[in-house]
């Protein structure tokens, strides 16, 4: 372990590589088929930084996120590449070491708090249990920490809510309780898998603002997966647009949202409905995403791309720089 990672875990420094993913590949193998879910993803994340991974269903965004915590079914998953989180080689950890890292170094929040929380224990008990298990403190101390956490995630009447079962809480409060659970052992990296997708509009914005303020206050690195470009725009510092298991465009959030360069990103933004489009025909992307049973040997978007040319089918497009800290995997960008 290099010493620079030790600095990153204290979550004070910025610019250090808290998360470093190199050429990550994930395949789901069964008797009949192999699904190439993630096909060579590389990125880094510094403490205090929020990376938004934007993609449609089946693009591999959730699988990428789960690979960072090795939350994939071991028996039928082949993971390649390297994943380093706060100095730990996640893919090489022993089961015991992995469960110590999960929760204390890297934690995750999910789309459906109702299925992520245990229905037969009170939320307060579940969180205190996690604290006792990871930090070896007394139950009384753990319960006090839990109350602090409930106040931190702005649960009203926190003391009373500790004794509530998940089904007794509203959707927004359940999501707050899950955030409290994820933060209970002070992780330096938080993974968020569409945590606001199941929430109503007025609750979604509350949870996004809460996550943003907690992330700033605690200096966490966050990887936030979403299909909604509006949500990504509210929370991310940098964006990665994912298609067919690859990052096809990455860069700082504002330039990408204002001037996307990859034809898929352009299409995705153009087909996201907003008020100004009333009465106009939507510029929909034709067709549907590729079947990932075959590893795409060329640009995966070529069959749907309005700018497709012969060169697009020659091989997997390399990363083409498109501005400061920006790249897009499209050979047509350099041609124009």
């Amino acid at each position: 372990m290099s010493s620079s990672f030790a600095v990153a875990t204290s979550a004070i420094s910025t610019g250090d590589r808290l998360v470093e993913v190199n050429d990550l590949t994930v395949r789901f193998v069964s008797k009949d088929t192999t699904i190439h879910a993630v096909n060579g993803v590389s990125f880094t994340l510094a403490a205090g930084e929020v990376l938004g991974i934007l993609g449609e269903s089946g693009s591999g965004k959730t699988v990428t996120l789960r690979a960072l915590m090795r939350l994939l079914p071991e028996g039928r998953t082949q993971i390649g590449g390297t994943v380093r989180v706060a100095g730990h080689d996640v893919l090489g950890l022993s089961p015991g070491a992995l469960s110590r890292v999960r929760g204390s170094t890297i934690a995750m929040i999910f789309q459906e708090p109702m299925t992520a929380l245990d229905p037969v224990y009170t939320v307060g008990y579940q969180i205190a249990e996690t604290v006792v298990r990871h930090e070896n403190v007394s139950w009384a101390e753990a319960r006090r920490r839990t109350l602090d956490l409930f106040e931190k995630v702005q649960i009203p009447s926190a003391q009373r809510r500790l004794d509530a079962y998940p089904h007794e809480l509203s959707g927004g409060l359940r999501q707050r309780a899950m955030i409290a659970l994820a933060l209970s052992c002070r992780p330096s990296v938080l993974l968020a898998d569409e945590p606001t997708t199941a929430l109503d509009a007025t609750v979604q914005i509350q949870i996004l603002l809460l996550l943003r303020s907690l992330q700033k206050e605690l200096g966490m690195g966050v990887v936030f997966v979403t299909h909604d470009v509006g949500v990504a725009g509210e929370i991310a510092d940098k964006l990665a647009i994912m298609y067919a298991g690859r990052f096809i465009e990455t860069g700082p959030v504002t330039p990408i949202m204002r001037a996307p360069r990859h034809p898929y990103t352009e299409g995705l933004l153009a087909s996201t409905v907003h008020g100004a489009m009333r009465g106009q025909r939507l510029k929909a992307i034709q067709g549907s995403p590729p079947n990932l049973e075959i590893l795409p040997a060329a640009c995966s978007f070529a069959p749907r791309c309005p700018r497709v040319a012969d060169i697009c089918l020659a091989g997997v497009p390399p990363e083409v720089p498109t501005g400061p800290d920006r790249m897009a995997r499209c050979v047509r960008i350099t041609q124009n």
């Binding site: 009203p156 509203s170 959707g171 927004g172 409060l173 109503d200 007025t202 609750v203 914005i205 509350q206 996004l208 603002l209 909604d228 470009v229 509006g230 949500v231 725009g233 509210e234 991310a236 959030v253 504002t254 949202m257 907003h274």
Partner: peptide
């Protein structure tokens, strides 16, 4: 969502759930 990262929402318009 504002659709503009430079002009993000800073205060939630409503508190609590329905």
């Amino acid at each position: 969502p504002s659709m503009d990262p430079e002009r993000r929402i800073t205060v939630p318009p409503l508190t609590g759930d329905p």
